[in-house]
Simulated assay, not measured.
Amino acid sequence: MVTLPEPGHRVVVRYLLPSGQATDALGELLEADAETVVVDGKRGVERIARADIIAAKEVPPPPAPRPRIV
């Protein structure tokens, strides 16, 4: 079983798609229970079954945007 931080932290979750390919969800962990993990990322809110999760970990906040040079 994968250990996740408390909701509100930024995480990356690697999980299996129905095709068998692995993909990642990167964003804020909204909730996690015994069956489902919910991550809010750039692709929107993703509900991931715990049984499909391969790995997960907390990650640092995104870097600050670079200033535009005009």
Rank of each mutant, 00 (worst) to 15 (best):
M1A: 13
M1V: 11
M1R: 13
V2W: 04
T3I: 15
T3P: 14
L4P: 14
L4F: 13
E6A: 14
E6M: 14
P7T: 10
G8F: 03
G8W: 02
G8L: 12
R10L: 06
R10W: 08
R10P: 07
V11P: 01
V12C: 02
V13E: 03
R14W: 07
Y15A: 02
Y15Q: 01
L16P: 03
L17Y: 05
L17H: 08
P18W: 05
P18C: 09
G20F: 10
Q21F: 05
Q21N: 07
A22F: 12
A22Y: 04
A22H: 13
T23S: 05
D24V: 11
A25L: 06
A25Q: 11
L26I: 10
G27L: 00
G27C: 01
E31K: 00
E31M: 09
A32S: 13
D33E: 04
E35H: 12
E35Y: 11
E35T: 15
E35K: 11
T36C: 06
V37T: 10
V39A: 00
V39D: 04
V39S: 08
V39M: 09
D40E: 01
D40T: 10
D40V: 05
D40I: 11
G41R: 04
K42G: 15
G44S: 12
V45L: 08
E46T: 02
R47W: 00
R47C: 11
R47D: 03
I48S: 05
I48F: 04
I48K: 01
I48V: 00
D52Y: 07
I53P: 07
I54N: 15
A55K: 10
K57N: 13
E58Q: 12
E58L: 07
P60D: 10
P60K: 00
P61G: 10
P61S: 12
P62M: 02
P62N: 09
P63A: 07
A64R: 03
A64P: 06
A64T: 08
P65H: 11
R66C: 11
R66N: 12
R68E: 13
I69P: 11
